[in-house]
């Protein structure tokens, strides 16, 4: 049987993690190709609705990553984001969404190795848990199924 390849979406900030992921590449460090990186101006911009959209469109796992506390390019963006994540994680857990599938991390522009680790470990974890069947049952692709239309 073919091994399950999880779909992971990474929401990262422009100034730290995106640059860190770039460093991973320029340092020739290999990491799982399951991750699709989406660049945001700041973790403060990563709205909770955006994370839900990823699950809706069939993601099995999510990585959210930005600058370490006190290192935010805009001074306070990651502090605000951290509060939001604390609350959002509580809400997800209470409404039955598996918080194991969302990995939050701080990765700076100098931490190319850490980024590779975060991605590899997350992919490994999601591979063990398996596809997100609960969410896939109600995902966007099911919205149009009856009409036979395809999901853009």
């Amino acid at each position: 049987m073919q091994e399950f390849e999880p779909k992971i979406v990474a929401f990262v900030c422009n100034w730290c993690t995106y640059a860190g992921a770039d460093l991973t590449g320029t340092s020739r460090i290999k990491y799982s190709a399951n991750v699709k990186i989406i660049r945001f101006p700041c973790t403060g911009r990563i709205d909770f609705m955006i994370l839900m959209k990823a699950f809706e469109n069939g993601a099995d796992g999510i990585i959210v990553s930005g600058c370490h506390p006190n290192d935010c390019h805009y001074s306070t963006g990651n502090f605000h984001a951290r509060r939001r994540w604390i609350v959002f994680r509580n809400l997800l857990n209470f409404s039955g969404i598996d918080t194991e599938r969302i990995q939050f991390s701080w990765v700076s522009a100098a931490e190319g190795f850490k980024w590779a680790d975060v991605v590899n470990n997350t992919v490994k974890k999601i591979r063990e848990i398996g596809p997100y069947e609960n969410y896939n049952k109600i995902a966007v692709s099911t919205l149009f199924k009856e009409e036979g239309a395809t999901n853009e």
């Binding site: 506390p69 502090f79 951290r82 604390i86 991390s105 975060v118």
Partner: peptide
């Protein structure tokens, strides 16, 4: 409002 402010030492245990 709790979510429109922050403390530099807000505690959490899930961010690596």
């Amino acid at each position: 409002y709790a979510l429109s402010t922050y403390k530099p030492d807000d505690k959490e245990n899930f961010i690596i």
